[in-house]
């Protein structure tokens, strides 16, 4: 296992996890759905413990679970009228946690990493770009109030499905050709 120090990741990971689960718990608790909070705490503790024990595979699975739970929790929160900014923060931070946990797992699984510091800085830089852009666009989208008719919604749904299937088929073709 590679033991090169990943200073940035080590510092950012707990902060992201705490921010994600706190935002989610706070948003839901404010709308009287505090029943979910113990689940988030258990998930967070389990993830932290697995990292502490250097079980990066388990930490990766738990990070997957955290992302799914954060998305589901945020969706429920928005449906019951929770503060959208908190829900968005929870999703963005959960995404950051998920990404960094898997990045750490990839690096720890390899015995030798060349220029690990450069690799880490570049990764965090791109993650920051994704998170900042995503948050900005999502915040802007939350601020917009527009009404869509049923037809427009169906068209939007079809467009999304079409774009997704095209992307997936292109990627599959590429990977089979490689």
């Amino acid at each position: 296992m590679n033991a090169s120090p990943l200073h940035l990741t080590t510092r950012l990971l707990p902060a992201c996890m705490i921010a994600a689960l706190s935002a989610l718990s706070l948003g839901l608790a404010l709308r009287g759905a505090a029943i979910f909070v113990p689940l988030f705490v258990i998930l967070g503790v389990a993830w932290g413990y697995s990292r502490h024990r250097r079980q990066h595979g388990l930490a990766g699975i738990l990070a997957d679970l955290v992302l799914v739970v954060a998305m589901a929790g945020a969706a429920i929160g928005l449906l019951i009228g929770a503060l959208p900014a908190l829900m968005l923060l929870a999703v963005v931070m959960a995404l950051g946690t998920w990404d960094l946990t898997h990045f750490e797992r990839r690096l720890r699984a390899i015995a030798r990493v060349e220029r690990a510091g450069d690799l880490e800085r570049r990764h965090v830089r791109w993650l920051l770009v994704a998170v900042v852009c995503g948050s900005a666009i999502a915040s802007f989208a939350l601020a917009i109030r527009t009404t869509l008719g049923f037809g427009a919604m169906v068209a939007l749904g079809l467009l999304a499905a079409l774009a997704l299937s095209l992307t997936i088929s292109t990627l599959r073709r590429e990977s089979s050709g490689a």
Binding site: M71, A75, V91, A130, V131, G134, G157
Partner: peptide, 24 residues
């Protein structure tokens, strides 16, 4: 899942949650 949930629930906020993921 979030996109279709948002469409089904007629809640734009849920669809907006997918934006950071899509950017990523």
């Amino acid at each position: 899942a979030a996109f279709f949930l948002g469409l089904a629930a007629l809640n734009g906020g849920v669809i907006v949650l997918t934006i950071p993921l899509l950017i990523y």
